[in-house]
Amino acid sequence: MSRYQEFFQGLRDMLPMLLGAMPFGIIYGSLAGAAGLDAWQTIGMSVLVFAGSAQFIAVSLLTGGATLAVLWLTTLVVNLRHALYSATLQPFVRHLPKRWRMPLAFWLTDEAFAVVQQRYARSDDSPNKHWYFLGAGLAMYGNWIGCTLIGLLFGQAVPNLAAWGLDFAMIATFVGIVVPMLRNRPQIAAALVAAVTALIFHDLPYKLGLMAAAFAGIVVGVALERYQRPLQEELC
């Protein structure tokens, strides 16, 4: 595919994810004021940081009067999973010059990662897959900034916006990403172990339970894959 085809395919494949991210951008835009961010800072955080969960947690911690050190540490821990995404995609972007790798890294969200790694997993050897990555990243970025703006401008018009439970959109999005990946026993086992570990450690501070769960799931997945190798990719 040509560059433009890849770019627009990336945009298009991202559309369902945009639906899932919209409520978050809107709620963030409407809540940031209460945490003491002015309008420019609210937009500025979406433009510069571009990390939904970290922005959310920052706003709620700010409302509770947390210090800068706590806010930054929390940002780091919440975003550590992005280092795993970065490692996963590195083999596919290592041939690109820095002027590509840096912006693509900036746009590496959960959603972009899910969509882009599926593109790289397809076996065709299109040399323009990074344009797909760019399209997916920009779609998410534009959507996030636009929704922040909507929340900022109109959020106060809807009473109790936070009480609607719009955060379910994240659950629906991630379910839609994960379920199609559960194609073999090691993947299913990784999911189950990650879920149980996350539940056991849910009250650890700074989302450390999430990292523990991720590592437990990965270890079990790999162990099972090695144990199963003689049986080949057995489908269940």
């Binding site: 999973r81 959960d110 991630f174 990403i177 090691p186 172990v193 769960a213 270890v219 790999v222």
Partner: peptide, 24 residues
């Protein structure tokens, strides 16, 4: 071994976010 492990990143991370969000 690392490349193999990275195959499980999306499943493990996203499941660990979703399941607690449903139950708690």
């Amino acid at each position: 071994a690392v490349r193999q492990a990275l195959h499980y990143v999306p499943t493990a991370v996203l499941t660990a976010i979703v399941v607690p969000a449903m139950l708690l």
